[in-house]
Simulated scan of single mutants.
Amino acid sequence: MLDPTEYNDQDMGRVEVKNTTCYMCACRCGIRVTLRDGEVRHIEGNPEHPLNKGVICAKGASGIMKQYSPARLTKPLLRRADAERGESKFEEISWDRAFDIMEERLGKIRKEDPKKFALFTGRDQMQALTGMFAKQFGTPNYAAHGGFCSVNMAAGLIYTIGGSFWEFGGPDLERAKLFIMIGTAEDHHS
């Protein structure tokens, strides 16, 4: 990526802006992503989005780092044979080798007892895929981030008011006679 203080995006290539949704948390704020020749260059809030009206948090604005962080993993890594667990000594391996290792290890577990396998994934958009894979594998031991972060809140809202905010939109503040916020910050949508 070129230094933006030395180069103007429009001088360097085709610039376009795409309206989309932020996935850095469960709020799903509207964002505008500026691309130059298909490369993400800038993320800002979308002022036309009904949820956040152009305001985004620092986490959302820094979403560009998911693409360009120097710490981002881009190839499979295998712990070196001479390394102990926790030493952070790895070697890059091919995707074919990584899949072969996974097939061998998971095949052994599935043959012996699939319930010995536990699966945990990140953000809530992965839960359906995680659950489907775990059920096909034969284990009930699966969970995802949303199970700890937001599902409990959704269940509480469904049982108390009949629905959760992200299923039915934000709270109806204009017609509310009393709105009590417990355990959340005023500037955070959820």
Rank of each mutant, 00 (worst) to 15 (best):
G45L: 13
I64D: 08
E39S: 02
R110W: 06
S150P: 00
M126V: 07
E87A: 15
I101W: 01
T160W: 03
E104Y: 07
R41L: 08
A61N: 12
R41Q: 10
L51I: 12
E84R: 15
M132Y: 09
R105D: 02
L119S: 05
P47I: 05
V40A: 08
A134F: 10
P70M: 01
A81G: 07
T121V: 11
A144Q: 10
E87L: 11
E39D: 00
F117S: 00
F120Q: 06
H49K: 13
V55T: 08
E103D: 06
P50V: 06
I109G: 11
E44M: 14
L157I: 00
I43L: 12
A143G: 04
A58I: 08
D100N: 11
I64P: 03
F99C: 08
E39A: 01
G147A: 06
N152P: 13
D113F: 01
I101D: 10
D82S: 15
E44D: 13
G45W: 13
M126G: 00
E112H: 10
D82N: 15
T121K: 00
G63I: 12
P114T: 02
D124L: 12
E91A: 14
A61R: 15
D100C: 04
G107P: 09
R41K: 13
P76H: 09
E103Y: 06
E91Q: 13
L106W: 05
I109K: 10
S94K: 09
F90R: 01
L106C: 09
A118K: 07
K108P: 02
R72N: 12
L119G: 05
L77H: 00
I64G: 12
M126E: 08
M132P: 00
L119A: 04
Q127V: 10
K89D: 10
A128N: 07
F120W: 02
R110G: 08
F137D: 06
A143E: 13
D124G: 15
F148V: 07
A134R: 02
A155G: 02
R72S: 05
P140V: 14
A83W: 08
P76N: 05
L51S: 10
L78Y: 04
R79W: 06
G107R: 09
T130W: 07
H42V: 07
